[in-house]
Design a protein around this nucleic acid. Structure first.
Length: 544
DNA sequence: TAAGTGCCGGAC
DNA sequence: AAACGTCCGGCACTTA
């Protein structure tokens, strides 16, 4: 990463402009308590701002610059950011202005009462909320399209070139302001003003969670990783022993992905900090990167790894997740009275399907039958076919089915839950219409996903409203948990789709558990009120 | 040599 | 008629 003080930075901008840079990052030179430059893994609290720094260059450099900017915003509440950035974003000589992850900038800056740069946030939020879909490696396309639509012209070459995970924007300041002036009514017209405003209000909680990080037992993490490396070295893949090649492949995956996490991501305070992206995913779920803590292998894949994520001394973790949330949300949205009734009666949906499949009452269902039914419920909910189900049941549940049995299971599922069947038929009709017209599906909060004519996806159209509504309920919970936990000295440390992890003082553990459970239930119930919501929350010393 | 893309496998 | 989805990141390969 190239970092320079202001004057050098400006000179660098002028120089690099002639090379038509892909991006230009604005960062702040931030020093930790020990005076050393703050690195991405470090605790940003208590750090000092030494001066404005500018990072120029191509992709990777820019990411570092933005990371520093974000951390800086967390460090110094009194920071006059508007004043610092003004020469860059209003005046010359900066030919380009970049706000990577502008939506985050919006939330943070708005919370500080900085008005002008906050407008950058609209474009990012809009491109996701407008539901045009994004490829993580080509996510500038929706923005390009929005820009063309709103401005009625192309932007000059080189001004809109982005390629990274969260939606990022590189644009000429004048054109950007013009874009944003047009964007706000567009959000309003499409009924997105509320969800957009909600997403903005969520940002401080997201940023707080990133800043806090999660405590990691780094030596233990390293020992586990070393164990993989040793085991891999001892494997002889040429020996043609059953399963060795597969084991080697799994170990290679673990080693290449996780071996250096402890070294690269654990800060001096022994906490690991990721980046959370509330508006990067079409579904409305969070995505996570650098590192992707939502992808840490579970116990059955890498024993003991999650247990390296621990509570701070004198603290406990509260680990809470929604029980069968996708089934519940689907029962609500479809709507499916049969499935709603199962949940309302406190019955087990897997047992209900098993009963229909085996042709006997629910209380006679054994564990094997229930296991099959679980695969059936999760598999067929979003439109899986019988053939693929047979494979899925084998790979994920160790069940052997032929195609005829898989088809019978599928029929039993739809017989058990006729409302789900009707919902699938309705989306099937959309599929046919989608050949020649654009189709939009929406979530409970009005988040959109549009399929352009000829690009409809049956399965995605089933999935997005369900997954998205669950994500929105989860986000409401996250918003409310921030102040609720603070009252007992606790805080959220990680979110993993339908799982919330908090850290609270040990003496407050039971109180914290109750708070998390109650708030999560109430939040989801705001969007999903036709079935009860169940949260399983436990007190633990470590994750996993 | 860096960037772009397909495939795969980890999570939920 | 049939169709499980949402992500991120590593590796292998092509392209310019």
């Amino acid at each position: 990463m190239q970092v320079a003080e202001v004057e050098r930075g400006r000179a660098a901008i002028a120089g690099i402009a002639q090379r038509r840079p892909k991006a230009l990052g604005v960062a702040l030179d931030v020093r930790g308590r020990d005076g050393a430059r703050l690195r991405s893994g470090d605790d940003p609290r208590g750090a000092q701002l030494e001066g404005l720094a500018i990072a120029v260059g191509l992709d990777g450099d820019r990411d570092d610059a933005v990371l520093l900017l974000e951390r800086a915003l967390l460090c110094d509440p009194a920071l006059d950011l508007g004043g610092l950035l003004a020469p860059l974003w209003q005046g010359q000589p900066a030919p380009y202005l970049v706000f990577a992850d502008a939506h985050r900038a919006l939330g943070v800056l708005a919370a500080r009462g900085v008005s002008a740069p906050t407008r950058f946030g609209c474009a990012t939020a809009a491109s996701t909320l407008l539901g045009e879909g994004a490829d993580r490696r080509r996510d500038h396309r929706p923005i390009d399209r929005s820009v063309r639509e709103l401005l009625g012209r192309e932007l000059p070459d080189g001004l809109l070139t982005v390629s990274s995970t969260s939606v990022r924007l590189a644009c000429e300041a004048e054109a950007l302001l013009e874009l944003l002036r047009a964007m706000t009514p567009m959000l309003r017209d499409r009924g997105l003003a509320r969800v957009y405003s909600f997403e903005c209000s969520l940002i401080p909680a997201v940023v707080a969670m990133e800043a806090v990080g999660i405590r990691v037992d780094a030596p233990r993490f390293e020992r586990i990783a070393s164990g993989w490396v040793r085991e891999r070295a001892e494997l002889d893949v040429d020996a043609e022993v059953e399963g060795v090649v597969e084991r080697a492949a799994r170990l290679d995956k673990l080693i290449s992905t996780y071996r250096y996490w402890a070294r690269d991501y654990v800060g001096q305070d022994q906490r690991m900090r990721c980046r959370l992206h509330p508006l990067a995913a079409d579904s409305g779920r969070f995505s996570c990167s650098e590192p992707n803590l939502q992808q840490v292998p579970a116990e059955h894949t890498a024993p003991g790894l999650r247990a390296c994520f621990v509570a701070a001394p004198e603290h406990k973790l509260i680990i809470a997740d929604y029980a069968q949330i996708e089934l519940r949300v689907a029962a609500h949205l479809a709507p499916c009275e049969a499935m709603r009734a199962v949940f309302r009666a406190g019955r087990d949906p897997h047992r209900a399907t098993a009963a229909n499949l085996a042709g006997k009452p629910e209380h006679e269902i054994d564990s094997h039958e229930r296991k099959l039914a679980k695969a059936v419920n999760f598999g067929f909910l979003f439109g899986m076919g019988a053939r693929r189900f047979a494979q899925y049941a084998r790979d994920s549940y160790g069940l052997e089915l032929d195609e005829r049995e898989a088809a019978a299971a599928r029929e039993a599922f739809f017989r058990t839950f006729p409302g789900i069947a009707a919902w699938h038929r309705r989306i099937g009709a959309m599929s046919r219409a989608g050949e020649r017209e654009d189709i939009t599906v929406v979530t409970a909060m009005g988040r959109r996903r549009t399929f352009l004519a000829g690009h409809f996806s049956f399965n995605t159209a089933l999935n997005i409203p369900v997954q998205g509504t669950a994500a929105e309920g989860f986000k409401i919970a996250m918003l409310k948990l921030e102040p609720a936990l603070a009252q007992i000295g606790g805080r959220g440390v990680l979110v993993v789709h339908d799982e919330y992890i908090a850290e609270v003082p040990a003496a407050q553990a039971e109180r914290g558990r109750e708070i998390v459970e109650q708030v999560m239930i109430a939040a989801m119930a705001e969007l999903v009120d036709s079935v009860p919501i169940v949260v399983e929350a436990e007190i633990a010393d470590h994750w996993g």
